[in-house]
Design a protein around this nucleic acid. Structure first.
Length: 359
DNA sequence: TCCATTTGACCGCC
DNA sequence: GGCGGTCAAATGGA
């Protein structure tokens, strides 16, 4: 069986390369918009992408499946991992009719080895609703428990596709005692499922790629068009806020896209609302960013950002893997997105398919 | 009827 | 034995 590293190395590199391409397109766009400081950010993004690419080419198969182990503190591991044929099958789905006792014991053992990481998510004020967080995946609540010492109960969610696709990803949502608007979301396991929206977008992407491969000249002609579409989609909801960067107030220089579709302004439309381009984003979001129909979709909009330190570096603290929160995105027609590509650690196990994101 | 949520009970770990 | 995590029956909504 191939190592997880191998399984989508090429697509990953392709996607990163495409990311570079898109950033260049973005740069072009920004140049036209005479946003000089946006250029600075783009340079950083490009540098980060290059760095990631270099890391990928260097690490190669050096990295092993140890990343699947629950390590402390875990670099925010991406939840997406192809585990087709994995031994980790949910009890209810793929279990063999063996002894329930041993199965249950196995379940606990597996649980311990699942990667685990935490995000701090601040919900956007305005909805006043309480509920699970929309993060691009379909979650189904399977339990809630009062936790000792915690004011608020902890909600337990698992992937909706657990039974169908054997996806073992779970998350726990715990409202912070100190700040009720902050939720600690602990993810466990990685998504092995293919979200419906993801399928659509990736297939579209695949179609585009097939088309491109079929006709190279056509590719040259269509790429700008494609990229433009991508850019259009990209800019519909994306704004990079940089005021937190190392004390540099770059707010004025942050690049933002003026034409925000009305959909993005609606609080009930959270396609981009939980977008965060950090490590966790790489893992926990369906690249399509299209929220599947889920009970949690309309509750509120979590605004997740990375802890952006100097030069987009995450801090060395325990919170390196913790997503702090933006204070608000509800009232902004353009959702703020903080991201740190510099801190990306591409888990070889993670099927980083940005086609959905950039499409 | 199907699906998601709720909630009490159960089980393993510490 | 207590606590955290999960299961599964009951319940409700679409």
């Amino acid at each position: 069986m191939e190592t997880c590293m191998d399984w989508e190395m090429k697509p990953l590199i392709n996607e990163l390369t495409q990311g570079k391409l898109l950033v260049n397109q973005l740069r072009f766009h920004l140049n036209n918009s005479s946003s000089s400081s946006g250029e600075l950010i783009i340079e950083e993004i490009l540098a980060s992408l290059n760095k990631a690419l270099m890391m990928l080419s260097n690490c190669g198969s050096a990295r092993d499946s140890s990343l699947l182990q629950a390590t402390t503190p875990p670099p925010p591991p991406p939840p997406l991992v192809p585990m087709s044929g994995t031994s980790e099958s949910p009890r209810s789905a793929i279990e063999s009719p063996g002894s329930d006792e041993s199965d249950r014991r196995d379940m606990f053992k597996k649980r311990k080895t699942l990667p685990r990481w935490t995000e701090h998510v601040r919900v956007c004020s305005g909805t006043g609703l309480e509920g699970p967080l929309e993060d691009g995946y379909s979650w189904r609540k399977y339990g809630q428990k009062d936790i000792l010492g915690a004011k608020y109960p902890r909600g337990y969610y698992r992937c909706t596709h657990r039974n169908v696709q054997g996806c073992l990803a779970t998350k726990q949502v715990q409202r912070s005692d100190e700040d009720p608007s902050v939720f600690d979301v602990t993810y466990r396991g990685r998504h092995t499922c293919v979200q419906a929206s993801h399928v659509v977008t990736t297939s579209q992407s695949a179609n585009n790629k097939a088309e491109v491969q079929g006709n190279h000249n056509k590719q040259e002609q269509e790429k700008p068009k494609q990229a433009q579409e991508i850019l259009l989609n990209f800019k519909t909801g994306l704004k990079v806020k940089t005021e937190d960067l190392d004390g540099r107030d770059l707010t004025s220089s942050s690049f933002s896209f003026p034409s925000t579709p009305i959909e993005c302004t609606k609080p009930e439309n959270h396609i981009f609302s939980s977008l965060s381009l950090d490590n966790n984003f790489m893992g926990s979001f369906s690249p399509s960013f299209i929220s599947p129909t889920t009970s949690e979709s309309n509750y509120f909009s979590p605004c997740r950002v990375n802890n952006i330190g100097p030069n987009f570096q995450t801090s060395d603290s325990d919170h390196a893997d913790i997503i702090s929160a933006a204070t608000s995105c509800t009232n902004s027609p353009i959702l703020d997105i903080h991201f740190s590509l510099d801190s990306l650690e591409f888990d070889p196990n993670f099927p980083f398919d940005t086609s959905g994101f950039f499409n």
